[in-house]
Computed example of a mutant assay.
Amino acid sequence: MRKGIIDRFEGDFAVVEFNGETEDILRSELPAEAKIGDTLIFEEDSVTIDKADTTKRKNEIQNLMDEVFEE
């Protein structure tokens, strides 16, 4: 098993970051609802969205943004 984060989409490919390095993966190999910022779990025959990790990371980013842009 390995985990990656969708950085962006380029045509038919998703650019997925694995430990600081990116890899192009066909969008057709990902869950249809996958979007930028989602954490993906790659196992032998499947790819799933790690919703808990995705939510945790988004909350952490939002908290950092709130701190930076405090009035």
Rank of each mutant, 00 (worst) to 15 (best):
I6L: 03
E23N: 06
A32D: 15
I61D: 12
E43A: 13
L26N: 03
I49D: 00
K58Y: 11
G37T: 06
P31Y: 01
L64R: 07
L64E: 12
I49C: 04
D50R: 00
I61G: 04
M65L: 05
G11T: 08
I25P: 01
T39W: 12
R57P: 03
E60A: 06
T55F: 07
L30I: 05
E67N: 11
A32C: 08
D24A: 14
V16R: 04
F13W: 13
L40P: 01
G20A: 10
A34Y: 02
I61C: 07
D53T: 14
F9M: 01
N59L: 15
R27D: 07
T55A: 15
K35T: 13
A52V: 08
V15M: 04
V15L: 03
D24T: 14
F69A: 03
F13M: 13
G4Q: 10
N19I: 11
R2D: 15
F13G: 01
E17W: 06
E43M: 07
A52T: 12
A34K: 02
M1D: 05
R27W: 02
T48Q: 15
T48G: 12
E17S: 08
G20R: 06
T22I: 08
I25M: 03
K51V: 12
V47S: 05
N63K: 11
I6W: 02
T55Q: 06
R57E: 06
E70K: 02
M1S: 10
N59R: 14
F13H: 11
E44I: 08
E29P: 08
G11Q: 02
L30M: 10
E10Q: 05
I5A: 08
E71A: 08
N59Q: 12
V47W: 02
K51W: 09
D12K: 11
M65R: 11
L26W: 00
R8L: 11
I41K: 01
D7W: 10
I6H: 00
F42N: 06
T55P: 01
K58N: 13
E10K: 03
V16S: 08
E70W: 01
K35M: 08
E60W: 02
K56G: 02
E33R: 13
V16N: 07
F69T: 03
E43H: 03
T39R: 09
D53K: 10
A52F: 07
D38K: 00
E33L: 13
V47Y: 02
T22P: 01
E70R: 05
N63H: 12
T55I: 15
I36L: 09
I61V: 09
A34H: 00
D7R: 13
D50K: 00
K58V: 13
T39N: 11
F9G: 02
D66F: 05
G37M: 03
E43R: 11
L30A: 00
F13Y: 14
D53R: 05
D38E: 01
E43L: 10
R8G: 08
V16T: 05
D38A: 04
L40D: 00
E29L: 15
K58R: 14
K58S: 14
I5F: 05
D24L: 15
V16Q: 12
E44A: 04
A14W: 09
M1Q: 14
F18E: 05
I61H: 09
M1G: 14
G37I: 11
D66S: 05
F42D: 00
E43T: 12
I49S: 06
D12T: 09
P31C: 03
